[in-house]
Design a protein around this nucleic acid. Structure first.
Lengths: 122, 122
DNA sequence: CTTGTCCCTGACATGGGTGTCAGGTCTTAC
DNA sequence: GTAAGACCTGACACCCATGTCAGGGACAAG
């Protein structure tokens, strides 16, 4: 498929897809005239890339980690698995932080709701 | 306390503390000579600010939300509570995404571990 | 009063993913 | 073969929290 279709189906801008390629995260074949063509599988890959960006990885980190995620299990070297574990740990810490922040907000919201309820009894 | 001590005790750079003040997130009194002085409570406030930054809020959003978090319950207006709920929702979605990414990594790691174990039986 | 340390403001830099524009080429349907 | 629309590269802009530097003042211990 061409880049516009991939953009639409993966929910990522054309600009970003070209950027991913430049960073070595996504590959394409080219037509005679130099336009990019993608396989169906590119959609999943792009979505995964977005997930990793959302998880706070830089493109360089993703370039390291993504091949390991997509490789067959036999191709995962201990060194790459270590990298994965590092990110896993980072993400886990981030989840912990977010849960705490969410709890803080929940407490504020529910406390305030009580006050409102008290002033407007059913 | 002075700004250097606050920086050290809250784990945030002096530069950032000045920035927070400029953004209206943190206040200080000034000495005759113009230097900033902080109360003990500033430490908690700074830590909370960091938490909110880590949760993906911009300084403008924090400026909106933080007073609501720190205000007495009676001062929380419905409009402010809505803002809080919006952020709560965003954070929750972020947590969901991160959990999924973490699961992906866990699966890769455990699958690979199985392979390694199989090739190096106990 | 001096000296060392801390603090002040203002300004510019940086990273990193993305938006956007210009000027030009490819593809495809007619 | 032509026109419309999609694509190409390269470049510049942006956001925004933070780093860093320069030049100068504040403050406290001796």
């Amino acid at each position: 498929m061409r880049i516009g279709e991939l953009a639409e189906r993966s929910g990522v801008s054309v600009r970003s897809l070209r950027y991913y390629e430049q960073q070595g995260l996504l590959s394409s074949t080219r037509t005679e005239g130099g336009q990019r063509r993608y396989e169906e599988g590119a959609i999943d890959r792009v979505i995964r890339i977005q997930e990793l960006f959302a998880a706070g990885l830089s493109s360089k980190r993703i370039a390291v980690v993504l091949p390991c995620i997509e490789a067959r299990a036999e191709n995962r070297t201990p060194a790459l698995l270590d990298e994965l574990a590092v990110e896993r740990q980072r993400i886990n810490a981030q989840i912990t932080d977010l849960l705490r922040t969410r709890d803080t907000l929940d407490e504020v919201i529910s406390t305030a709701a009580d006050v409102l309820t008290a002033s407007q009894p059913a």
